[in-house]
Nucleic acid binder design. Sequence first.
RNA 1: GGGCCCUUAGCUCAGCAGGUAGAGCAACUGACUCUUAAUCAGUAGGUUGUCGGUUCGAUCCCGACAGGGCUCACCA
Length: 496
Amino acid sequence: MEENELLKKRKEKIEALRAEGIDLYPNNVNVKNTTEEILSRFSDADHDQLVQIEERFSIAGRIMAIRNFGKAAFISLQDRKGRLQGYIHKQIVGEEAYQLFKKLDVGDIVMTEGKVFRTKTGELTIEADRLRLLSKAIRPLPEKWHGLTDIETRYRQRHLDLIVNPRVKEVFQKRSRIIQLMRRFMEDRDFLEVETPMMQPRAGGAVARPFKTYHHALGMDLYLRIAPELYLKRLVTGGMERVYEINRNFRNEGISSFHNPEFTMMEFYQAYATYEDLMSLTESLFTFIAQNLLGQLTFSYQDRQIDLTPPWRRVTVKDAIIQTCRIDPDILENAARAIAYARSLHLDVNDQEPLGKVIMAIFEETAEAGLVQPTFVTHYPVEVSPLSRRNAVNPSLTDRFELYICGKEIANAFSELNDPVDQRDRFLMQLKDREAGDEEAHGMDEDYITALEYAMPPTAGEGIGIDRLVMLLTDSASIRDVILFPHMRIKDEGGN
RNA sequence: GGGCCCUUAGCUCAGCAGGUAGAGCAACUGACUCUUAAUCAGUAGGUUGUCGGUUCGAUCCCGACAGGGCUCACCA
């Protein structure tokens, strides 16, 4: 990176401090308090009450602002909990510390110790009788008023974004809380958290293009997983009747405001349950999270009011289309008529397209965007559900649902196909799709079928897109706002 | 990958029928003992994303490239 005047001056300043024998990066720090502790403890105390308090406090954090008056100054100190004002007075902190203070910059990390008081304007303030430099900043922070708004810099230098934009930290605190609540919910229902391979010899369990890598010692190709599904179901077969995994999936697809190449899913399996049981479980899980996170079941997402109060609407794929398009239901029962209708919507479908795929294309084009309030869409066609159990009444459909909120798919669940013979047929169907040019069709997985041949209990499983759920609950417009380090192209010329 | 748009000082932004750039904050010097976007006086800071073209002359017009945003496609 080029040396601009700003950096040059700052480095000179730092060398001067070093020359004075000041340790710019000490590590023996004993911080007793946080800004939040002090602020909440004395929120109601007035000036006279604070004068009585002899106790000294210590906080450490980053200097976010300095307001200097010659012999005294105010600093704004930011720690992980928030900000507290510090008062640095020459006579109180001492000559030596005050000389050091005059050489500090916004962005430096310091520790202050002292009593608390209230200023004339009523702000709770720590009156430093000690001040230590803990870490010296060489680069200046972005501007204090407008902050850092350049989206590219915010994602590429997330540390800066976090320092300057408090809302960003709140989003990631909420994300952590949501995942914590999920774990508690699953634990309460006796689910066991497990970890299954991220690198797999076959990328199965979903329909997507995988990332490929190579293992030198084994001399074999490996794929980053697109889903943990087949491994988790092996565990259910093994007697782990309730398992869940919260981890990353990798899909080599386009990037958008709702898609990141690596994204986080909670996937779970419950033996002796059906997809209908999972609908109730999902309602309970989401209301549990919302209640604990927001204190209520309603929230607004990008100016739309969402209400999570159960029961949520349940509608079949076909009914969702029929209600949206007001068409003759028979159109969706006949491949030729369905294809003709799809083409009238300007959808690109070929003459050999199976009915189920045509129906899904129509659904996605017409009904999906209108599913704003939480909705379970059920009865997906068997052609697009290679791992789902067939519906007992109509075997061309599956016992499957996807959860939609704000027109986006948030979860996907089904009663699992545990008949190894049918599973083999489904894989063979997928292989035909692959031969027909569908690169994302599911591959044959003999090991998985062998596992099923040992008998997997009747089971239902579900995957929940955690990034998208966090987006909803934090009102974030882009998935990049809920992923700390979203994927970006590398920039050739170093630095910013 | 396609379409549209964006890239000017550390940050946030101006600018110009084409005549090589301004402000605020940050920085630097000085003043100041209750400020909170502190204030006041002064100083300095730019290969206008990169490369090429047109032109006497390009930050501005044209092209390519790079990075980013929105969007469509693929997908969750």
